[in-house]
Amino acid sequence: MRWMWIDRVVELVPRQKMVAIKQVSMAEEHLHDHFAGSASRPAMPVMPACFIVEGMAQTAGILVGHAEGFKEKVVLAKVSRAELDLDARPGDTIRYTAEIEQFSAVGASTRGLVELISWGGDGPGNPRVLGRIDLMFSHLDNNMGGEKYPEENFVFSESFATLLSLSGIEAPAFG
């Protein structure tokens, strides 16, 4: 099972835009260490920034993969920009909105907005901008170096199929 950093796709406009959410949970073990309490400081569980970047990479990667029916092996090739200004804590919802900026046979660039939705007694609060993450993806089989990769699409695994199916999005059998 691949480590998934999004729980559900809530909107998909093919070749343009995808929105996904993640519920941050205290059951995630890494939050116990990030950051653990000490004699001088109470515990401060916050979602590690690298996993927020990965969440956006999965959101944008699915959007880019969906554009060509998941035939391409879409891999994250570059984090062009990542600015994260707020912490996401257990109980928060992270909402990822990825948009394709440019797309070619070789790869794609995406722009991404990360929002934080905190819950209170009255339900979800207004989304606040957590950060922005712009990425570049490469279509591996069309790489400029002419390198060859296995025929099987090892990028879009069963976990992605499950996620898309749960989100009501039609996708071919992966793996």
Binding site: A77, S80, E101, S104, G107, S109, M136, N143, M144, G145
Partner: peptide, 25 residues
């Protein structure tokens, strides 16, 4: 190598023309 694609995309945006695969490099 991925920067080459990034540069191509950004040149397209900056100048408003399209660059075919293999045309620039």
């Amino acid at each position: 190598s991925i920067d080459i694609l990034d540069i191509s995309f950004q040149l397209e945006k900056a100048f408003g023309f399209k660059i075919a695969q293999g045309e620039l490099f």
